[in-house]
Design a protein around this nucleic acid. Structure first.
Length: 623
RNA sequence: GGGGCUGUAGCUCAGCCGGAUAGAGCGACGGUUUCCUAAACCGUAGGUCGUGGGUUCGAGUCCCGCCAGCCCCGCCA
């Protein structure tokens, strides 16, 4: 008998990811039936088809099996397909499997199966993305500007990528703690306070005695003195020790400087809609001694040249000597490695003396890779990482100018983040006004500013996120604001087009929303169940197939932490939609097709809005 | 010297556990608008995947060597 085929039918519609899983299970069973002797090394290798002509899924497993079975690949594939042909679950989902090329098995979903899934998506606000059971917190450590300095281009990628990853993890149901590990405690502070004591003591005792711009100048001066003046250097180092030791005057000066910087940071975060909790390096000050104590207990601490070090395993420096992580400087001060270790220790530790996290994600530039590798190793050897705890550095490349070099202003200074955002918004503004003039459109000043701001900031975010983060990123206002191509304006325009259909009489809100139809209301586009959805044009099917891929993309981004995968998906969705929009009428469609097309429009808009939202980009109704 | 990242079309980049004829955008060239916003759509041209070996039924993808660029390598973060 065929007991292994016994399964409940009909099966409910499921999102694509589940279809993939279901088909993988059925293929696995077919493999085990066809080749019982080879159980253990059977893998269907089912994946999305690489080309539309191959259907929806392709199984590559037969090819791998052929060798070990010493059979021709096509014969292996035929044996698998013969089993699949008897499987009612597969048959309910797919057309008869096809063998192609050297031995690929191609699966094409039945139209009814696709329609059923569209119907399910239409009534699911999560668009098929499952909500994971809540577990312990995930900490995303990103942005991390320095107090007494303005945010600059170096903070751009961390801020945008970190925010996006946090949004995606949250959407999946993870409790996410977004932490801003601001630089508020290091040697830089000693430098600045020492310098201010001499040139502008008022700044240390009176709030806002100097503005942030001046503070940046003072900081630069202090840095210069620190690099060139040994006496100043010694004084500055002592200042750090005093601060870290809790000296009241130093603490007060420090507090004033922090408040001032914080307001500037908050303005940028508000503008970019970044939600982040400040928890600077200073927060971990009370835990630094415990770090040393733990390392001592673990037998890792070594005094070398007056400094307390942990020597790394498997990492040798010059002359083959192991590389140290310095946790206490010879002057008694702690440095960033100590703070980073204290942070890891605290974040994994159970409450109330810790965050009880199970996963830490650090979004910083790739240049810090070896620093984190070292710190992570020390944390592991110190025993601070709990069972199953994950510690990940998510690196990204440099922001470069169009000349391929590190982005600088014309005068060679670091580009301020505020200026960068202003630049994008100004260009979007000028572009919009020119377009309005050309088209003879009249819009309110409020509309223009709103659109310019949304488009400009979206362009900056999208350009960054749409590139694989591991490579350096070439910053170009012209490219990111281009109206065609893989850009934010192109995607936003697709959403606007759908909103236009709604304004012109398309009832998107009720199209396929599952609400009971009012008898005889004659409302076009109102569909209530899968049975009423119907598609005929290839452009419709292409859109259907693309829409159903959303859940798989989100799962992939969550796993790989690569937002550019989501960007590619959304760009392609926009392209497929624009083709549909161009070649298939919606509002002027025959009555029997109109509702289904409106439903596709609504699902496209919902998918784009949700996807862009996960990138941190709001959409517009008109632009 | 050691370590890391990168090298794919003229330019900017994708390429998801190794899978079918390596993709996209821009730029170039040529088309499309009585019709829901042409910010669009359709088409053409363009590649020794840095290079030399190796593993494999199959390599842009994995391993080794080499070349080039960028970054890091004890008291900055």
């Amino acid at each position: 008998m065929i007991g292994w085929l016994a399964a409940p039918l009909p099966r409910p519609p499921e999102p694509m990811l589940s279809v993939l899983n279901t088909l993988t299970e059925r293929l696995q069973l077919a493999l085990e039936q066809a080749f019982p002797a080879a159980v253990g090394l059977l893998d269907p290798q089912l994946a999305a088809a690489s080309k539309p002509e191959f259907g929806d899924f392709q199984a590559n497993g037969a090819l791998a099996l052929a060798k070990s079975l010493r059979q021709p690949p096509r014969a292996v594939a035929e044996a698998i397909v013969a089993r699949l042909a008897d499987d009612p679950i597969v048959d309910a989902l797919c057309l008869p499997p096809q063998i192609a090329g050297p031995g690929f098995i191609n699966l094409t979903l039945r139209p009814q199966a696709l329609v059923a899934q569209v119907a399910e998506r239409l009534v699911d606000p999560r668009l098929g993305v499952p909500l994971e059971a809540a577990q312990a917190a995930v900490i995303v450590d990103f942005s991390s500007p320095n107090i007494a300095k303005e945010m600059h281009v170096g903070h751009l990628r961390s801020t945008i990528i970190g925010d996006c990853l946090a949004r995606i993890l949250e959407f999946r149901g993870q409790p996410v703690l977004r932490l801003n590990h601001v630089g508020d405690w290091g040697t830089q502070f000693g430098m600045l306070i020492t310098h201010l004591k001499q040139v502008a003591p008022a700044a240390l005792s009176t709030a806002d005695a100097v503005d942030l711009g001046d503070l940046v100048v003072f900081y630069r001066q202090a840095k210069q003195r620190f690099d060139n003046d040994e006496a100043f250097q010694a004084t500055a180092r002592q200042e750090v020790v005093k601060l870290q030791g809790g000296d009241p005057l130093s603490l007060k000066a420090w507090g004033l400087l922090c408040d001032q910087s914080r307001r500037e940071f908050e303005a940028i975060y508000k503008r970019l809609a970044i939600d982040i909790k400040e928890r600077g390096e200073s927060f971990y000050n009370p835990y630094l001694e415990a770090v040393l104590a733990d390392l001592q207990t673990a037998g890792l601490l070594v005094r070398d040249d007056g400094a307390e070090c942990v020597f790394l395993e498997g990492v040798s420096g010059k002359e083959g000597k192991p590389l140290p992580v310095i946790v206490r400087k010879s002057d008694g001060g702690y440095n960033y490695a100590t703070t980073d270790l204290a942070a890891i220790r605290y974040r994994f530790a159970p409450p109330p003396a810790g965050d009880g996290a199970r996963r830490l994600i650090y979004v910083t530039d790739a240049g810090q890779a070896s620093h984190f590798a070292g710190v992570f190793q020390v944390a592991r050897r110190a025993g601070w990482i709990p069972e199953g705890g994950r510690l990940e550095h998510v690196p990204f490349g440099l922001v470069q100018g169009e000349d391929g070099k590190k982005l600088k202003t014309r005068s060679g200074d670091t580009v301020r983040l505020k200026d960068l955002l202003d630049g994008a918004v100004e260009r979007a503004d000028a572009d919009l006004r020119r377009r309005l003039a050309e088209e003879g459109r009249a819009e309110s000043e409020e509309f223009i500013q709103q659109v310019a701001s949304t488009v400009g900031l979206a362009a900056v975010k999208y350009a960054d996120l749409s590139q694989n983060r591991t490579t350096n990123y070439q910053f170009s206002f012209d490219r990111m604001l281009a109206l065609q191509g893989n850009t934010a304006p192109y995607l936003l325009y697709a959403v606007v087009r759908i909103a236009g259909i709604a304004r012109k009489g398309g009832d998107l809100d009720s199209a396929g929303d599952g609400a009971p139809a009012e008898d005889g209301d004659g409302m076009p586009g109102r569909l209530t169940n899968a049975g009423e959805l119907q598609f005929s044009e290839p452009q419709e099917w292409a859109l259907v197939r693309h829409l159903l891929g959303f859940d798989a993309v989100i799962a992939e981004v969550e796993e790989e932490l690569l937002p550019n995968r989501l960007c590619t998906y959304l760009f392609e969705l926009s392209q497929v939609f624009n083709r549909f929009y161009d070649q298939v009428p919606v509002l002027k469609a025959p009555a029997e097709a109109r509702g289904s097309r409106l439903a596709l429009c609504r699902l496209t808009a919902d998918t784009l809005k949700l996807g862009l939202g996960l990138l941190g980009i709001p959409t517009l109704e008109r632009m």
